[in-house]
Amino acid sequence: MRYQNATAYRFLAPYLLIFSIFWLWPIISSFLISFQATRTVPWRFAPTFNWGRLIGDPAFFNALKNTLLILVIQVPVMITLAIVMAVLLNSPLLKARGLFRFAFFAPVVVGEVAYSAVFRLMFNLDYGIINKLLNSVGLPRIDWFSNVTPAMAVIMIAVSWRWAGYNAIILLAGLQSIPQDVYEAATLDRVSKLKQFFYITLPLLKPIIVFCAVLSIIGTMQLFTEPFLITERGGPGGGTETLGLLLYRQGFKSLNFGYASAIAYTMAGLAIAISLVQLWLTRDPK
């Protein structure tokens, strides 16, 4: 038995080695770095240097506020949208189901840079199709990228566009696992389609919805591409700067690895904490 275990570990060794070097070590190392002052050579141990700065840094709180704001609005809207899309995909009335499924999923495989460029064009002040549409229905055009609120809106729209379909596909699998005869039983019980959705579909889908929500929370906590590329590095004036962007700015522009590590740990900690609260709130009552 012992011997067999040893053999197994020998087979696992290459993986464990690579995992340790490129995964485990950076995790530990960055934790240690977050307690060091890294602007001086050599680095020195200074436990409160970065963490102390974090607590009093307006840039950090601005990024935190932006990230949480996007999280609180975008995640629920996107999940709701994804549920609607999943229900539509699952409807027996839908024609060309395969085409829709592909169309919903396609944004995920589009390159980030290309998609960001397209969104910048679409929301362009003078030539963008969005402003053209607004004009055509008699609404004033909006300067999307010069004001904070519309800029935030663009980011939320973009992120939702990119990931709603992905979540819808996951939810669709959940929908399809609900047996048809449960709905038939409800039909015989004179329960309308709408009530069936709220009293049967949603409760049975809950574990999948929670799963999607946790995935989305983790994703949004790390939000980087959209504010970096679409609103040009968190513009206007840091109005859309997220924690991910702040981390990038500190770590790779200012080369302040200690502070960047502290931010990274804050992001991970928040993602875990929010997800746990989410799981706890939606746990099955026993």
Partner: peptide
């Protein structure tokens, strides 16, 4: 629902997330 029939399915088709009591009363409550 208006035919005055009730059906028992091969797979039982119980509402998995409801207690036995809720399963029995669901239709009437709705």
């Amino acid at each position: 629902a208006d035919r005055g029939i009730a059906m028992v399915f091969q797979s039982y088709a119980l509402y998995p997330h409801m207690s036995v009591e809720q399963n029995l009363s669901f239709g009437l409550r709705m």
